[in-house]
Design a protein around this nucleic acid. Structure first.
Lengths: 243, 243
DNA sequence: CGCCAGGTTGATTTCGCTCAAGCAATGTGG
DNA sequence: CCACATTGCTTGAGCGAAATCAACCTGGCG
């Protein structure tokens, strides 16, 4: 693989698997070549940090392969997992554009390859091709929607419902539908990370899982989840007061 | 004032008080004239709705004067107040860009004047002047920061701390500093709306206020708040476990 | 082998919600 | 001008969901 000590690796934007799905797909070949030249790529092992909250932000990071968790912690050391980022996603564009330090941190959840594009290159591209900015804008808008939806949920829904919702979101990417509303899911996350995603403690996660088992909503074995009937999971979303 | 039945009013972008602070300040005079022609303005009384969650989004709305609350509710009818929007702020640009229906609703909290700019005009301006898109992008980035900060807080901080934080945020715009760390604040919000901002019930808001009174952190009389010593309020932010 | 992180479980506490009542200010109709 | 509703806010009593504290179990790994 030709890795050096710090796991540097070389990649080609033109043959990148994610090429069609990223913000960068609005670039011309010439422009993409600038990215290709200006970037540097690295492999990360699970648990390795790509950037930390508070780090100066010297460019943006694009996921070529793997899975990344975006975390944020408060003064007391409590941490939540804001979202997952997948291949093709660009990270850090927000602090980059505002000229701020990173306001959250990114950690590899699986072995990942991340390409970093330096500040000068991105600035040049943004001014050359206005569509790029609009793509970032759309991305920000989607994240904002998700964040606001999340705020609403954690303020109004009980833990069971929030967890059911999380499973349904993970289903879209990691689930396998079966017959008669059955569904199987291979979780990309540890239980503590799932807890951090819905803002609860690991102990509460355990208890919620057990409670799902007992009411036959879902069955857990390691990171494998089996849902006997999707409608059972959907019912969990709408508990609050029968009205 | 020449109002018609539906409170239509006329305004001039060139003499608008907020001209220097809005996203639109990157426009040339010619471009601003397009906004000026394409907009329509209306007065709203407190409690009136500017747009509803789910409404089709036919353009963007700019606040000329007043105060607007951005609300979002879930299926169960529970509502939170996501943020306040002030003169110069543009609302609805997000759903507009995504081509979606509005994903939250906007309600006047004070008598307000709102100018609406139609879809065609905004699209034309965006393609004419790429800086406009970047301004919106920055705006979205700020909102996203705030939303993520909020998510972290409501997951990790107790109600007292969240309320203290809210008061400190409101202080920036509505507060008057006094001697020796004293501070006076004229709240722009009812108690139920403050409750909705930090995701709690009105009863809990009442109790939290009383608890602040009892521990001499702040004194409330109607919408007037007196904080004898700012450091007391700041201490509230860092409660969770003495470590 | 011992260590350790991740996970589970139990006992207990606590914070905020629910339900219910009461109060003050404001408005409305006879 | 008074009787009555309405709305925003406060207060109390009781409950319940999730946090905390603590123990223990498991599998992986040096």
């Amino acid at each position: 693989m030709g890795n050096t000590n710090n796991h540097t690796t070389s990649r080609n934007c033109f043959t990148c698997q994610t090429r069609g799905q990223t913000e960068w797909c609005v670039l011309s070949d010439d422009e993409l070549e600038m990215v290709n030249q200006g970037k540097s790529c690295r492999e990360y092992l699970p648990g390795e940090t790509i950037f930390h909250e508070g780090d100066p932000c010297g460019g943006v990071h694009c996921i070529e392969h793997g899975l990344v968790g975006i975390r944020k912690m408060n003064a007391g050391g409590d941490e939540i997992l804001l979202r997952l980022s997948h291949p093709g996603d660009t990270m850090g564009y927000r602090s980059f554009l505002g000229g701020d330090a990173h306001n959250n941190s990114a950690e590899a959840m699986e072995p990942s390859v991340i390409c970093s594009i330096d500040e000068a290159t991105v600035r040049k591209l943004l001014s050359m091709n206005p569509s790029l900015g609009l793509r970032f804008l759309r991305h920000a808008a989607e994240d904002l929607n998700a964040a606001e939806e999340m705020a609403l949920q954690s303020a109004t829904l009980p833990v069971r419902a929030r967890f059911a919702h999380l499973l349904l979101v993970l289903k879209d990417r990691y689930g396998q539908d079966g017959k008669n509303g059955e569904m199987t899911l291979e979780l990309p996350l540890s239980r503590q990370d799932m807890a951090a995603m819905i803002g609860i403690r690991p102990e509460s996660m355990s208890r919620t899982i057990r409670s799902f088992e007992e009411s036959n909503v879902a069955h857990f074995s390691g990171r494998r989840v089996h849902v006997p009937n999707l409608s059972g999971l959907l019912d969990e979303l709408e508990i609050p007061d029968g009205l």
